[in-house]
Computed example of a mutant assay.
Amino acid sequence: MYTTGVRTTSLAPMLAENGTAGVARALSEPSWVEVKWDGIRAIGTWAEGRMLLHARRGTDITARYPELTADGAPFLPVADAIVDGEIVAFDVHGRPSFSLLQNRMHLTRPREIEREVVRTPVVYMLFDLLRLDGHDLTGLPLRERRTLLEDVIADLDAPVQIPPVFDDVDAALAASREFGLEGVVVKDPRSRYRPGQRSPSWLKLKHTRMQEVVVVGIRPGKGDRESTLGSLLLAVPEPDRRRLRYVGRVGTGFTDRILRDLLTRLEPLRIDAAPLDGVPVLDASDALWVRPEVVGEVEFANWTPDGVLRHARWRGLRPDKRPDEIVVES
């Protein structure tokens, strides 16, 4: 639902399923391939000359990105619109960096936000248009929504951009790997937009295996990390969504700033007993348990036969996800 007076949106973004190159190639001829940006999903609501931003779960993140929303931000030449896209930070080599974006995505104090706008600039990569001048576009095919989006955004400068669409799955995958990108998303150009649904009409193909996880415990740090934490104990929901399954621990990928931030978030969640069964004795021996509320993301090599993440490395927090929204990657 969308109302111009209050300028609110309850639209949840459409989601992609995991796929393979073979299945993705069969979606359409020619193919419709977009870069998979390593950022955070954001629904943008444009009305009364201002942009509001909401994360995947509906959290209002407008104030965190003033270069997109405050006075002087890009001005859309329409009365109202709802757009879908990804907020991305780029490293010095021009590659999307989820770790850099962590410097922005949790800030709430205006002075800190203002400082990081300069230190960590972002780009809003738009790939869909859901509403335009009072008209619901979700029932239109993707190719038509894209044409309308290009018309709306045509004369805007950074930090709002429309990334290109490619027509060769294999070439796009090879190029994204060569440039160190996360992967690609292949879409059926005839697809309607289905808010909040995960659809086989959109398939994500990733080079690096990644898994969303919920933090269930802390193992104290030693040596240089004695004052912070050594590793996090992780879990994913069981298929019935009523219980959690232990999937191992992660102790690498943290900066000093991330360690401090994690401790600040996890300390108030401390509990006396483990919130799940099945944690190996060695991992549980010195664990400090927490309520399973904080969701993060790790990259990993593969799953062990007993369902544990092998060679996990921390990528960052996912405040846009709830524990029950975690999907176990195959």
Rank of each mutant, 00 (worst) to 15 (best):
L309F: 11
T264D: 10
E297Y: 08
R318C: 01
P305A: 04
G307L: 07
L266P: 06
R310M: 01
P292G: 04
T255K: 14
G296K: 08
A287K: 07
A301T: 12
D272P: 05
L317K: 14
D256G: 15
R265W: 01
S285F: 03
T264K: 15
P305L: 02
T255I: 05
V290R: 03
T255Y: 11
W289A: 12
P292F: 01
N302E: 12
R291S: 07
A273V: 10
T252C: 11
A287H: 10
L317Q: 13
G316T: 06
G253V: 00
W314E: 11
F300G: 04
V295G: 06
E293K: 03
L262I: 12
L317C: 08
W303R: 01
K321D: 00
R270I: 09
V295T: 12
F300L: 00
R265L: 11
A312F: 12
R257Y: 13
L266E: 09
R313Q: 05
P280G: 13
A301Q: 13
T264R: 15
G307Q: 09
V279G: 07
G253S: 06
W303V: 01
S285L: 08
W289N: 09
D261G: 14
V308W: 08
L269Q: 13
D277G: 09
R322A: 09
R260H: 10
A312Q: 14
E293Q: 10
R318E: 00
